[in-house]
Computed example of a mutant assay.
Amino acid sequence: MRSTERNLRKFPLVLALLSLVSYTLADTCSCGYAQGADVIWTDSIETDFTAVRDIETFQDWAVQKWTSARNVSEAPYGRLREARNVVANPATGGDGSIGKDGSQAGLQLYVRSALEDDNTLVPVGEIFSKREDIQYGSFRAGIQTSSINGTVSAFFWYRNATQEVDMELLSAETTANNSTLNMVLQSWQSLWAGSDASKTAGFKKDVLPFIADDAVHEYRFDWTPTSVSFYVDSNHLWTNTLPDFVPSSPGYLVLNHWSNGNSGWSRGPPKEDARMIVTYVKAYFNSTDPVRQRDFSSACRKPSSDNICQITPQAEPPICRKPGGCEGGTMTVSSAASTGKVLSAILISIVGMAAVWLAGI
């Protein structure tokens, strides 16, 4: 009798655990990410860099460590990608905006002023997404550029020299009132023009109504089979629908901060160490990986409003409003394709806890 009464008293906790299962089921995005009424992306990479403490071990991003030798005909310096130029600066509390070094929290990508290798290489910071199966999607990054003249802050998708979607801000183009965004679509035409997209229809400049190094803003591009569109803080800037400039193959994402002394582009190198800050990346896309595609189909049996997550536009410059992290990006590193496996483990764990509790073990 006492055992029965004890177990009856445990039922409220069991019900709470089962309600957690229900909440988990409804919150998995197992049937993808809806962008408006007509577009659903199957996979995601969502990284809150204000919460990252060790970028070297982070599962979604790879710190780059390699050299681009200088080509004197194009630029006087090469680029030396080093781990020391990619620095995690996690939020330490308060409203989530201040990092451990007292500056804006987020991942810091440096361009150093001291040259290496007999003054031939500029030390720079760069990361790649570990996913290389990204084909079509919506890609957003919260970025604060450097105020030091002579560097390029860039967020882009890359396949090769003829398939690239790029957003670049040159610190040399920042004035006392505004900054300039360069929207770049590399193509066969740009390759034939000496890798200079500005000589093609795959290039556009736009003057932004703010100073990019003053605060974090969201830089975004949406890529479909027929177009590439560019946005800042969800304000549409340009759409290119010319077939020659819309990529069609899978690739990966890149964030970098660099200089090579090219007088027509980056200028520099900077006279002092320059820092670009990335607070988050939100990428929603389709995968060309057959395993990912199969996992998604398996996880998404019955699409509904409970298992399709809505992508929320960033309608204003992102700011931090909660302790320990930035509202502009949430630490959710698992993709929709792997949600089913994660969910199964959570479900088994919760049901197991309930069973053990009821058994009185």
Rank of each mutant, 00 (worst) to 15 (best):
Val254Gln: 06
Ser190Trp: 06
Arg159Asn: 12
Ser195Cys: 02
Asp166Lys: 11
Val184Gln: 02
Gln163Phe: 01
Val184Pro: 01
Ile277Tyr: 12
Pro225Met: 02
Leu208Gly: 12
Ile277Pro: 05
Ser171Leu: 08
Gln186Ser: 13
Asn260Cys: 03
Asn177Ile: 10
Asp206Lys: 09
Ile277His: 06
Ser227Val: 02
Asn182Gln: 14
Lys204Thr: 08
Thr174Ser: 14
Thr226Met: 03
Ala197Ile: 06
Gly264Phe: 06
Trp157Met: 01
Asn256His: 11
Tyr158Leu: 05
Thr162Lys: 07
Asp273Trp: 12
Thr162Arg: 07
Asp214Ser: 14
Ser229Arg: 04
Ser190Pro: 00
Tyr252Met: 13
Pro270Tyr: 08
Phe245Ala: 01
Asn262Cys: 01
Trp238Arg: 05
Gly150Val: 05
Asp233Gly: 02
Tyr219Ile: 09
Glu272Asp: 11
Val281Glu: 11
Asn178Met: 06
Pro269Gln: 07
Thr224Tyr: 07
Thr151Asn: 06
Glu173Gln: 14
Arg267Gln: 15
Gly150His: 06
Asn262Ile: 01
Pro225Thr: 04
Gly142Cys: 04
Phe230Ser: 10
Leu170Asp: 01
Leu170Thr: 05
Ser249Glu: 15
Arg267Leu: 14
Phe155Gly: 00
Ile148Pro: 00
His236Ser: 14
Arg159Phe: 09
Leu253Arg: 00
Trp223Lys: 00
Gly251Lys: 02
Leu242Gln: 11
Gln144Phe: 05
Ile211His: 06
Ile277Gln: 09
Ile143Phe: 01
Ser234Asp: 15
Trp238Phe: 13
Thr241Ser: 05
Ser266Gln: 06
Ala161Thr: 07
Glu218His: 00
Ala172Phe: 04
Glu168Ala: 13
Thr279Ser: 14
Ala161His: 05
Pro247Lys: 05
Trp223Leu: 07
Ser229Trp: 02
Gly202Pro: 09
Thr145Trp: 04
Ser259Gln: 05
Ser227Ala: 15
Arg220Gly: 04
Gly268Ala: 12
Ser195Leu: 08
Leu208Asp: 14
Asp196Phe: 06
Glu173Gly: 02
Phe210Asp: 05
Lys271Leu: 14
Asp213Arg: 00
Phe203Tyr: 15
Val207Lys: 10
Trp265Ser: 15
Gln186Trp: 14
Thr224Asp: 13
Ala176Leu: 10
Ala154Leu: 04
Asn260Pro: 08
Val281Ile: 15
Trp223Phe: 04
Leu255Lys: 00
Gly264Thr: 07
Val232Asp: 10
Trp188Ser: 01
Ser190Gly: 03
Trp192Cys: 02
Phe245Lys: 00
His217Cys: 12
Glu272Ser: 15
Met167Pro: 00
Ala161Leu: 01
Val281Arg: 01
Pro270His: 08
Asn149Asp: 13
Ala215Ser: 13
Ala193Trp: 00
Thr279Val: 07
Ser190Asn: 03
Phe203Pro: 05
Thr175Val: 09
Asn149Gln: 10
Val232Gly: 10
Ser266Lys: 07
Gly268Arg: 00
Glu272Gln: 15
His257Thr: 14
Val228Lys: 06
Ser146Glu: 12
Phe155Pro: 03
His217Ser: 12
Thr175His: 07
Trp238Gln: 07
